[in-house]
Design a protein around this nucleic acid. Structure first.
Lengths: 210, 210
DNA sequence: TATCTTTGACCGACCGTTCAATCAAAGACG
DNA sequence: CGTCTTTGATTGAACGGTCGGTCAAAGATA
């Protein structure tokens, strides 16, 4: 370690890593993990194949780095009150944030859908202790469970104001799967409907499930 | 072509093709197209690698054959009145059939989700004129467009009975994306909820959108 | 024997990964 | 300032391995 290598050199290194990660994200999310070759990523990033391995020790570590970076980005922009229950206003805000996150990180979500749905890739990543995904320091699985609980509690509490005909489980499943369906359309076929439709859908979701 | 090869030999050949296709479907849908090797399929089908090429002239032709077979199966079990409009009863029946089709052809739908969402694989298949998918003789795209029209008309007609507050476009998008979300859950995480929940969801969908 | 089916060794292509060699830039020295 | 040394980023040929696909030959059948 030479003394000059501290500040600005580290920064340049991070910039280059980011360039590689952006290029790789584009390719992974469009073509999938297996179909994307290191050579393609390198060529599109404007560097040689070998240099890739000065920044990431394997193709899989590159993938893990991309996922972790995006998870952190998302976490920073989306942090509903923890240790608290969801108010209707917070619930409404949650729906809006979710759609915003899909809009701002579309490529990442494409990647996630493909990788998570691809048996083998995700399992292999899970086996590697260095690649355990975290969201704001919390293991991803734990974080998901917490969010699910928050949501579930919200619907259970709604029963008190909505009357005895209200089935919280059914309503929550309807809500979450509708969201899932819109996410899929929005991520993989954003041009299928005009943008106004998606905005309208947000309002409809809020009206129906808030 | 030997003279005796007509009836029963052709039948045996079709049986073996079916065996290969079933095995391949299992592997493609679980691991994806690229990650599945011809050798694995052959081994699991109990034949040699070389013999695969007596039945299918390439890995991609094998994939195309599987997709076409399943499309035909589905078409035969699911043929709502053509050249006609959808009545509420037919609409209800449509929802039930959709879920039944997802249940009966789960592996095929896993394959479809993965292949269709994977840029490159589908494009390559589309380029091959021999691999143009058809449903009951009709090109897949044409068939999809027809079904979408049928559905769209149904919601437009509903406006007459539901009053002026009813927005057919919004309602149809809510419906179709909810269905999409449930399909995704049902296909990729069928164990996430007990079977009764899915049955309940069918009834809820019918109640809300019929 | 003649014909058809089936095999698995084999091929060229391409994959992810490695590493010896290169080179521009920054420090050290005078 | 000019010259020599050191550094670490960068390259691309090369490697071991695996893939989809081929084909000569052995097996099965009649």
């Amino acid at each position: 370690m030479s003394p000059r290598s501290s500040a600005q050199f580290e920064e340049m290194r991070e910039e280059k890593k980011a360039l590689i990660m952006n290029t790789a994200l584009e390719h992974f999310s469009d073509y999938g993990f297996h179909a994307t070759t290191i050579s393609h990523i390198a060529k599109h990033a404007g560097i040689s194949k070998g240099l890739m391995y000065n920044y990431f020790k394997s193709k899989e570590e590159l993938l893990a780095a991309i996922i972790n970076r995006s998870l952190d980005e998302i976490y920073r922009s989306f942090n509903p009150d923890r240790d608290s229950t969801l108010t209707p206003d917070e619930f409404e805000n949650f729906i809006r944030r979710i759609f915003a996150i899909f809009r701002e990180n579309r490529q990442f979500w494409k990647l996630i859908y493909r990788v998570m749905l691809q048996r083998g890739v995700y399992e292999h990543l899970s086996d590697d202790p260095d690649a355990t995904f975290t969201v704001g320091g919390i293991p991803l699985m734990e974080y998901s469970a917490y969010m699910a609980k928050l949501m579930s509690d919200y619907f259970i509490r709604k029963k008190e104001t909505e009357g005895p005909d209200f089935d919280p489980v059914t309503e929550m499943l309807m809500f979450s799967n509708t969201l899932k369906g819109f996410a899929l359309t929005y991520i993989f076929a954003p041009g299928q409907y005009p943008d106004e439709y998606f905005e309208k859908m947000v309002e409809t979701l809020i009206r129906k499930y808030r």
